[in-house]
Design a protein around this nucleic acid. Sequence first.
DNA 1: AAGTAGATTCCCATTCATCGGGAATCAGGG
DNA 2: CCCTGATTCCCGATGAATGGGAATCTACTT
Lengths: 250, 250
Amino acid sequence: MANSPSGDSVTERLVRVLETFTPTRTVQTAAEIGRRAGLPSSTAHRVVGELVDAGLLDRDGEGRIRVGVRLWELATRSSLPLRVRQAALPAMERVQARVGEHTQLAILEQDEALFLERLSSPDAGANITRVAGRLPLHASSSGLVLLAFADPALQERVLARPLRRLTASTPTDPVAVRRKLAEVRRLGHAIAPGFIEEVSTGVAVPVRDANGRAAAALSVVLPRDAAPGPALEELHRAARDVERALAQHG
Amino acid sequence: MANSPSGDSVTERLVRVLETFTPTRTVQTAAEIGRRAGLPSSTAHRVVGELVDAGLLDRDGEGRIRVGVRLWELATRSSLPLRVRQAALPAMERVQARVGEHTQLAILEQDEALFLERLSSPDAGANITRVAGRLPLHASSSGLVLLAFADPALQERVLARPLRRLTASTPTDPVAVRRKLAEVRRLGHAIAPGFIEEVSTGVAVPVRDANGRAAAALSVVLPRDAAPGPALEELHRAARDVERALAQHG
DNA sequence: AAGTAGATTCCCATTCATCGGGAATCAGGG
DNA sequence: CCCTGATTCCCGATGAATGGGAATCTACTT
């Protein structure tokens, strides 16, 4: 048979299978994976079996499948997230120690903000981001700095698409976002009060590369009524440190 | 043709391709990948192209291939390394701050010690481990605690194989290692003077799970002549914290 | 204890995606 | 300008992957 209803290469399908795992759904049965990836049951089981043999997936106790440690190991060969994370970690620790709330690191990835790391204090608020989670560029302080200091073509592309609303405070008018971006460029940081959840405010600064583009964004999540001043100061200092670390290390 | 001279499924081949990337070789050309994976040139280029399309590999500026951010993202769905790392990071930071040398986190993976995280101080010594690096179980303090508190069957399996020698101080006699393991169990920690490189001593403690097995190992690397006492005390305290964090978080 | 629903494993004939040799094209270095 | 090596393109043969179906195997329910 090998029907392949559309351009459905083996590699693509493999990615589809891996994508059935999400930050919140980390264990599934082979049948669930098949259903979610749109695979016939027998095929799903065979494919999952192959992936388990290859070590990309792990089969625990009985039946339940999870992403394999091997995949993590291979992925760690990815220089970019690892390098940025390594460079930023010490500075993030300092920010976290002094400001005390969630401290986050994000990069621009496929027109979204991808969060590489988050340091949380036990007493910090709810978790609105998670490691390897994504948020829209226009609706988070991290996203705004990434966008403000990005390739103009990318800005146009993002603003041309409908802007998702997360709360009543999320700016969804392209004109308003454009104005916001200009402000971010002028001030050198972004403040996003209630964009993601009404009770908290995101504060972010860019980590610039040699071309002035944002290589990453450092951010903290504050209670909505907190003064952002001290956090901003810490973040700016941290960003300078990270810029130095990235430049030096090559 | 599709010759497949041996059991060479698409999945296996894919892993072979990814494995041509190592912690030290993070960028290659498509041709290099093909050569290292033992693929004919035209096949290599096609396969690499597919992987780039799928987002598992990235093609930068021109020609050079690196592991894609997407792969890191997918891999992060792997609950285990991430969960352990999250649980251990705060404790590791404290150890690192007080002891000041390399502070490491490792788990048991396929009969080797796999290092999940390393915090280094700028003034710490050479880098004998790296994130996502591996070391033999008998030749590192981390490996020894992982082995000492592991499934006995696994201990037998490891000791039955030839034990690689890294320095003159590396124990390679199964009897000596067995004695060492008993000592580790009795003391609750492992000290490995010069096992990996003559000038340094590894000190490790287990992070135990509910069954008493080692879920992970916390370790620091000290200069060979340093007293291990203070580091051990910190490590034991840290291990208890990590155990609590793992148990609590589920 | 039997009954049921779902997950998982096996089997196998069909077929289409994959394979790789080869040639053409594209850098770039001397 | 001519190499050398990387990369892309083409294409016919082939066998590995496919998925329907049936048989097992759990794990609950009645």
